[in-house]
Design a binder for these strands. Sequence first.
RNA 1: AGGCACGUAGCUCAGUGGGAGAGCGCCAUCCUGACGCGGUGGAUGUCCAGGGUUCAAAUCCCUGCGUGCCUACCA
Length: 887
Amino acid sequence: MGKEALTKVYEPRAAEAKWYQYWLDNDFFHAADSSSKEPFSIVIPPPNVTGMLHMGHALNNVLQDICVRYKRMQGYNALWMPGMDHAGIATQNVVEQELAKEGLTRHDLGRVKFIERVWEWKAKYGGVIIHQLKRLGCSCDWSRERFTMDEGLSKAVREVFVRLYNDGLIYQGDYIVNWCPRCRTAISDLEVEYHMEAGHLWNIRYPFVEGEGGIVVATTRPETMLGDTAVAVNPNDGRYRELIGREVILPLMNRRIPVIADDYVTMEFGSGAVKITPASDPNDFAMAGRHKLEIIRIMDDNAVINKNGGVYEGQDRYECRRNVVRDLETGGYLVGTEPYAHNIGQCYRCKTDIEPAVSRQWFVKIAPLAKEATAAVVKGKTRIIPPSWEATYFEWMNNIRDWCISRQIWWGHRIPVWNCDGCGKVIVASHDPDLCPDCGGTKLRQEEDVLDTWFSSGLWPFSTLGWPERTEALRTFYPTSLLVTGFDILFFWVARMMMMGLYVMKDVPFRDVYLHALVRDENGEKMSKSKGNSIDPLEMMDRFGTDAFRFTLAAFTAQGRDVRMSEERIEGYKYFINKIWNATRFSMMNVEDYSSDAAVQREDESIADRWIKARLNRTIAEVIRGLDEYRFNDATAAVYQFIWHEFCDWYLELIKPVLYGKENNAARRAAQKTLTDVLTTSLKLLHPFMPFLTEEIWQTLVADESSIMVSPFPEADETMSDPEAEGEMALIMEVITRIRNIRGEMNVVPSLKLKATLAVPAADLQTTLEKGRVYIMNLANLETLIITGEMTEPKGAATAVAGPVHVYLFLAGVIDVAGEENRLQKEIARVDKDLILVSRKLANPEFLAKAAEAVVKKEQEKARVLREKRAALDAALIRLAAFSKSG
RNA sequence: AGGCACGUAGCUCAGUGGGAGAGCGCCAUCCUGACGCGGUGGAUGUCCAGGGUUCAAAUCCCUGCGUGCCUACCA
């Protein structure tokens, strides 16, 4: 105690920089590989190395930091493992754009030089987001920071690839995949985004090879007809049954193609006949497999028509479409065109239209892995929170398709497969082989493709802890305790970590998965740069302070709900910080002469002291429950409500007379002690949400430990509960509120001291109110207060009822009869409304018979109280009338 | 096309079987020795609509309307 005074206002910027550095200097974020403490671990969802902090990151990481700070204070050996993702396609794009400014392509540099260039870029610009996370206050163990392209993690990738391959879970083959012509790579099903677009449905007639007429097919992509190898109809379609097995001529190409029958064809759609382009459509590709159709690729990797496209060679797909339509029309093949809205798949990275294309790719056979991952959640080895997401998880796992893991880019983990030029042997190895194990040849060519970035992120929970080495850290922290992430990457990432973790480690990667919502703007729209509605978290931190921003994020995180961000709300919590700051200043001014060594007897404590401690105890329990159940908004609401409305609004006001008057030193010391204890405990409760503010205050106010972040988190304590004090204070507070209410309603100037009488029917209540006498006189601003057992009915006083207590307030001069009557009538109306409801319930024999006994009792008690109140108010009204006549 | 949410005070949202709540906003009032980023008091609701279950429904069930999202994709 007795530290220097706090500045008049809290300065977030200075405090944030100072204390973050202090925590780093003291290694407080560091978790030991082994410890006698129970472990708690979280791995960060690794942000892209190209990433900049946006609202989604901010929410995600603040929630993690809250959890990890909470657990650390609770005495766990708490690890928050940080790191970044190499983000194959995104990063390669960035560096290629940089090269483009120099007029170069990656092919000009060659693979090796290009990779060097990416590493240079990373060293120079990569990882900006790490600094931004530090500004957020994230208490990651930075000494363990990992990158998916690190040596260790690369080793893990190779090791897992080899194991999967040897177990027959990785295969290579020619399949139709989602091809991004701009990125010039295959991408997985998950990386395709679909959205509706207004297009056309072109109806084209394919003439029969023999005889008159032809068959009409409908398509949204006429240019693909160049690669058609069949026309399909439904075998049950009477209109076309005769035609099955006949041949038609493919217009423009003059190729003979068969009419085939397949159940896939929907009779009701279009003409009921569909053109089949196996190389450009996944369904057609599947059909080609069933019917042994020829597969003709008509486009190259840039989606430009190749030599198989005849005269259209060299045209890009959109140009080709225009020309094909024109030529069909000229040739008389185009039967009709109608507007048609349909879904277009786009690359989620670059928004280029996806071109389904057949190519040779590597796949993970996913069904066996998905089975394990499903079972783990069914068995409860991993909990998904909120549980409503479990259904989505199962649904996806049950309908999962093989995962295309090869990417035709350079930045990433090159697939550890070599082909021997000598004997054609395929070598799959975790270490680069020098010679072929079969023929001893040295001409080995490594596979050109790299792995999908999510392949390496799938290993994140154990690769970051050192696997495949059997490290101490791995033993201590795997399975991790918790994963916090947005539901949007449930499939991309969570599901794959589950599969990989179970496959490699034979155990789930995390016990709990907390899925939080997406941050949207005030109108509920997803924030995006292109929409211009994004709020920059860094700007929010600059303007309102990091703590206000953090608290806001936590306060808006209700389970299963979107988080709608708005600046006004952050500002509101900035005010809360100001409130805490000033409550602290007040406290420090009034405890200067207090030493924590001073003996304080239990009996010296006032009822207010006992009350605030009991309330604090409840608040602790609520905060703990909120955090344990990931109900962050409940936790913030509890602590906000307590500090502002109980501690500041009531407790500080209640003890002011005790603090100011120096006459009763024992009581004063007790108040000083309570004030100090409650404030410091509140700071601890707040710390996970507001690390900087609480540290700043702690260092000035307490500092009996090196930092609030390593001080023990409060525990709810039965011995601190005090229902008696809570009940007594409730009555005292209600009396005060009733008097204030009269004063306000009757427009009494606040500075005017009044006389009041409390008529109290029971002796114990009289004692209670005597205990609260000073509080009532001060907070209701009274000149005199009579507390009597006689149920007197003074004339000319305004009347209110506080539970069983009748409150009479003597207004200065002559009472405003009309005003008081109005006030009483209003109150009576309110009572009547409740009374009618309760009476109706109690008049219902079925309610009495079937409702729980406690419920009935409660209702009866409620009715009794209401009736008494009604009677008292009636009496007051009658007295008022008499007074007005006599007066 | 299927699936999942959501619809509560002017706004943003908690609450999920027995007293309709919070924050912000609004009205009135107060320069009380921590705070005007404050204090005190006040007003405000067909808890989307309709039906059902129950002694009792904002809360559970069904239907409808509206909104949002996810998954799949039929040319």
